[in-house]
Every structure is written in structure tokens, then in C-alpha cells.
């Protein structure tokens, strides 16, 4: 007689619930998208990319009062090779922009970008020759966080928004099998 095991199926709101508590057996039924997205969404390792004062709030969000580790994002990586999400914390100067782009390119797929604060998202008060007017001119941004600087709970909310986005991803969308054209190749 096998022991009765309660298994909980991971699900999000987009997929039908296949069985919250299964009475018999130890089989979990889910689809591949959900399984993969759960794994991706709950282990978002951020890249250390503090550019200005927003970085102080970013550090505070990892500290014990707010504890970003509860969402699986405590491991700030100093190398882009091991990071999943880049938190652009602070104003992005035009001199820094190529560096940001190179580091973004070095991150392995799948990768996401959170633009933290007014300066990174739009330039903020620094509407001048030195600051990039929005980090989305350089890298594709997934979640924007307004604020100057956003408080740690506002950043945690952005991480939750990003998790929601990842959980609604369809696996096929992440991989583009479209061959590149010659113009794109040479560019």
C-alpha cells in the first residue's frame, strides 16, 4: 500500500489548474512552459550594476529589513556570465553606455533588464549632453521603476512584476529561429 502523498502542482493564473491536491500517487502533472518559467522566475540572479545613488537602495533591498532573498534574488553576481537580470541602478552616462551594452551582451540567455529609477528610465532631471535619456536606448528594458530613488519595497515590487512577466512567457517565444540576413550579419 503506497503512502498517500499530497502533491501540489505549480501553476500560474494563465494555465488551468490540473489538480491542487492529488489524493493518490505521486505524479505531478504540469506543462513544460510552467515548469521552466517557475524555475526561471524564482531564481533571478541580479547583476551588480550600481551606477549611482539608486545602488544604495538596491543594496538595502538585499539587506535583512527587506530581504530580496525571499524571491530568490539574493545572489548578486559580479560577472555577467552568471547573472539573469541586470538592474540598471542609476543614471547612465553616454560614456558608460557601451560598457553597459557589452556587459548585457555577455549575459547568457534568457536575460532581463530592470531599469531602476528616474535617471535610468528616462534621464530624470539630467536632460543634458552627458546622460543617456533612458537605458532602453541601449538595452531592451523589461520593467521600469519610477522613483528617485525607488525605495527597496518599490524595487521588490518590480522584481515581482518581472516574475509575473516571466511566468506568462511562452517558451517558444524566447528562441527565435529566424535566420539572420546578410545586412544584420555585417552590421
Amino acid at each position: 500500500m503506497p503512502k498517500r502523498i499530497e502533491t501540489v502542482v505549480f501553476h500560474d493564473s494563465s494555465t488551468p489548474v490540473l489538480g491542487d491536491v492529488q489524493k493518490a500517487g505521486s505524479v505531478v502533472v504540469t506543462n513544460f512552459d510552467t515548469l521552466l518559467n517557475q524555475a526561471r522566475a524564482n531564481a533571478l540572479w541580479p547583476l551588480t550594476f550600481g551606477l549611482a545613488c539608486c545602488a544604495i537602495e538596491m543594496m538595502a533591498s538585499v539587506a535583512s529589513r527587506f530581504d530580496l532573498a525571499r524571491f530568490g534574488s539574493e545572489a548578486f553576481r559580479a560577472t555577467p556570465r552568471q547573472a539573469d537580470v541586470m538592474i540598471i541602478a542609476g543614471r547612465l552616462s553616454k560614456k558608460m553606455a557601451p560598457v553597459l551594452r557589452q556587459i548585457y551582451d555577455q549575459m547568457p540567455e534568457p536575460k532581463w533588464v530592470i531599469s531602476m529609477g528616474a535617471c535610468a528610465s528616462s534621464g530624470g532631471v539630467y536632460n543634458n549632453y552627458a546622460i543617456v535619456q533612458g537605458a532602453d536606448q541601449v538595452v531592451p528594458v523589461d520593467v521600469y521603476v519610477p522613483g528617485c530613488p525607488p525605495s527597496p519595497d518599490a524595487l521588490i515590487y518590480a522584481v515581482m512584476k518581472l516574475q509575473q512577466k516571466i511566468k506568462h512567457n511562452k517558451f517558444g517565444k524566447l528562441i527565435e529561429l529566424k535566420p539572420r540576413t546578410l545586412e544584420e550579419e555585417s552590421a
Partner: peptide, 12 residues
């Protein structure tokens, strides 16, 4: 109300 983060630029 600090929960203002969103996905699209136009939403802001």
C-alpha cells in the same frame, strides 16, 4: 502609493 513599476514606457 509606491507600487508604480510597469512594463511599457507608454504606461507611465
Amino acid at each position: 502609493d509606491f507600487e508604480l513599476a510597469n512594463y511599457e514606457r507608454e504606461d507611465f
